[in-house]
């Protein structure tokens, strides 16, 4: 049986635990055992240790990487930021021997040592490369029957490609999330702003209005070019943005219709037979209609 360390991070654990529940349902169904990486911390987020010091950033990530090393597992994440921060640290620790030495000096003070034996993997990539599209198709009990889906991979899930050992083959035309959605029976056409930033993250804290500008532009393109039934994200933060901000825009009268949004792990869990209500329980949006459509029955 395959085994991975589930890095749950902050936003998934606290704001979208329904997405955490989706991971905990879906992975075992696909024959993957989950290690909890007991004692894990923040990745750390880009606005924290990375904005203080190079070595302190790498050492904070190494805290988590070491936990995975001790368990003998690779790390998987639902969140683009966790994937980005941990992967950049992994990359820097391997590319810069002086940094690794400095980090290990810091870690030695608490009796720890970074070796570099565990990889960091985004769940989108793990599903695509490790589980495989055929196995996912075979394990599914629900087929999406041509449901039209706009995908939102998320910035950190693709760039900087040099930091990702199993990144997309074309970093400006990410294909894996589309392939996963199509393996579940959906159709996922490309659109012109597919790789645009959703506006979540530091910008949303610094200036909600400007963040909303980016988001609205992306949303308009999705509506005009695709008018999809559903938006599926590869990143938990993008999920939060598409869930919360459409609701806010609608309440302000700035948009008419709202497109339901899910993370790929939620959609996967539902297709593998999870309770759809529980797996989307933290949505601000009303999910009833799309869940009925997906499950083919009123739920």
């Amino acid at each position: 049986m395959k085994k991975v360390g589930f890095f749950v991070g902050c936003n998934t654990a606290f704001n979208r635990p329904d997405n955490e529940a989706a991971v905990r349902y879906a992975l075992p169904k696909l024959g993957v055992e989950i290690d909890n990486l007991d004692g894990q911390t923040c990745c750390p987020a880009f606005g924290t240790m990375p904005s203080i010091d190079d070595a302190a950033w790498a050492a904070s990530s190494a805290w988590n990487l070491i936990i995975a090393e001790e368990r003998g597992v690779d790390i998987v994440t639902t969140c683009g930021s966790c994937y980005g921060s941990l992967s950049e640290s992994y990359h820097n620790l391997h590319a810069k021997p002086a940094l690794k030495e400095k980090v290990n000096e810091q870690l030695a003070k608490i009796g720890k040592q970074y070796k570099g034996t565990s990889q960091v993997r985004l769940l989108v990539n793990y599903l695509h490369n490790e589980i495989g599209l055929d196995a996912i198709k075979q394990a599914s009990v629900i087929n999406l029957n041509g449901l039209k889906i706009a995908v939102q991979p998320g910035c950190h899930t693709i760039w900087p490609s040099k930091a990702y050992f199993e990144g997309e083959s074309d970093a400006f035309h990410p294909a894996r999330l589309r392939a996963l959605v199509e393996a579940l029976g959906g159709i996922a056409p490309s659109y012109s702003r597919l790789t645009d930033c959703c506006g979540m993250g530091a910008m949303r804290s610094a200036s909600p209005e400007r963040s909303m500008l980016l988001f609205k532009k992306k949303l308009e393109t999705i509506n005009t070019e695709l008018a999809p039934d559903l938006i599926v994200t590869g990143c938990n933060s993008c999920l939060m943005q598409f869930d919360m901000s459409q609701d806010q825009l609608q309440k302000k009268g700035e948009i008419e219709n709202v497109i339901p949004a899910m993370h790929i792990m939620q959609l996967l869990a539902i297709c593998l037979g999870a309770d759809p209500k529980q797996i989307t329980a933290m949505s601000v949006q009303n999910m009833d209609e799309i869940l009925n459509k997906i499950c083919g029955v009123k739920i």
């Binding site: 990375p50 910035c155 950190h156 760039w159 400006f172 930033c197 530091a202 200036s207």
Partner: peptide, 11 residues
């Protein structure tokens, strides 16, 4: 402080 850390610029 509003930078999204998206790393497009690096790419």
């Amino acid at each position: 402080w509003a930078c999204q850390s998206c790393n497009r610029c690096v790419e």
